[in-house]
């Protein structure tokens, strides 16, 4: 069978780990780009587009690297546009519909607060290319975090309506954050190889960033429930199919064409 098919049959943990790192920014970038031309104020159109561009940039570097590691000739586009839903390793949090501006900024906040210790941890990766990507992505994540946190506070502590919406957003998104810190064999293997960091090792830092901001916004974290999403294992929500249908349509409709 082909090398790619062989890899899918028995996935290499290193590549699996890289795809997890790549797919979440890819899908979140896709979601944020839906805001273009529809933001509450022109200045935010630019800010959201900037964040989307950064995330898509991270995804491109990581996908290219994963494809090179795999050695089966798959480039960033083949990975982005020709994998099936089950093969995507993004966390479920990022594929959820944007909802209103409150939900969008809160998700950016929760996700970038996770990326911060993640990229910091990966600066020491034995995978030199990954370490380099982490260094660049860290600066971007810092900026995303600052901007999103400022919005969470302003909306949480703004008007009654904005508070209500932020509260609803937190209720909706919070359960999907558990997945970020749930460990499994892929992460254990990556950490053991000195290539990656486990999600569970990031949780304390994440809470230290997130909880004070929520408090300042007049919000409190919901209680943890047994719910655990499984996007990074390839088992997504109903939203992913629609997202991928839209994202992949051109490459599926015109197989083999160059753009």
């Amino acid at each position: 069978m082909s090398r790619a098919a062989a890899n899918r049959a028995k996935p290499d943990p290193h590549i699996e780990y890289l795809l997890r790192l790549a797919d979440s920014p890819l899908i979140l970038g896709q979601r944020l780009s839906e805001w273009c031309g529809h933001a509450p104020v022109l200045e935010e159109d630019l800010a959201l587009a900037n964040t989307a561009l950064d995330l898509i940039g991270q995804a491109r570097l990581l996908l290219t690297h994963a494809g090179a590691q795999e050695g089966a000739g798959r480039d960033e586009d083949q990975l982005a546009f020709l994998r099936s839903e089950r093969e995507f390793r993004s966390c479920t949090l990022v594929e959820l519909p944007n909802g209103d501006f409150a939900r969008t900024v809160l998700r950016n906040f929760l996700f970038s607060a996770y990326q911060l210790p993640l990229w910091e941890g990966l600066l020491a990766s034995r995978d030199a290319q990954l370490a380099a990507i982490a260094a660049k992505s860290l600066k971007e994540a810092r900026y995303h975090l600052r901007h999103a946190a400022d919005w969470v506070v302003r909306l949480g502590a703004g008007t009654e309506e904005s508070h209500r919406r932020m509260h609803a957003a937190l209720d909706y998104l919070w359960p999907f954050t558990a997945e970020l810190f749930a460990g499994d064999a892929v992460e254990e293997a990556a950490a053991a190889a000195g290539v990656g960091v486990t999600g569970s090792s990031l949780q304390t830092r994440w809470e230290a960033t997130v909880l004070p901001v929520l408090q300042e916004a007049g919000l409190s974290a919901p209680a943890r429930t047994p719910f655990l999403s499984q996007g990074k294992l390839g088992v997504h929500s109903e939203h992913m199919g629609h997202l991928l249908a839209e994202m992949q349509t051109m490459q599926r409709a015109y197989p083999g064409a160059r753009w």
């Binding site: 104020v41 200045e43 630019l46 600052r146 901007h147 400022d150 302003r154």
Partner: peptide, 20 residues
Amino acid sequence: SLHAPDARMALQNARDIYTR
């Protein structure tokens, strides 16, 4: 120039608008 609700936001917006 640009519109922003406060100084922090103004600085961030200025970065996105004028230093791309």
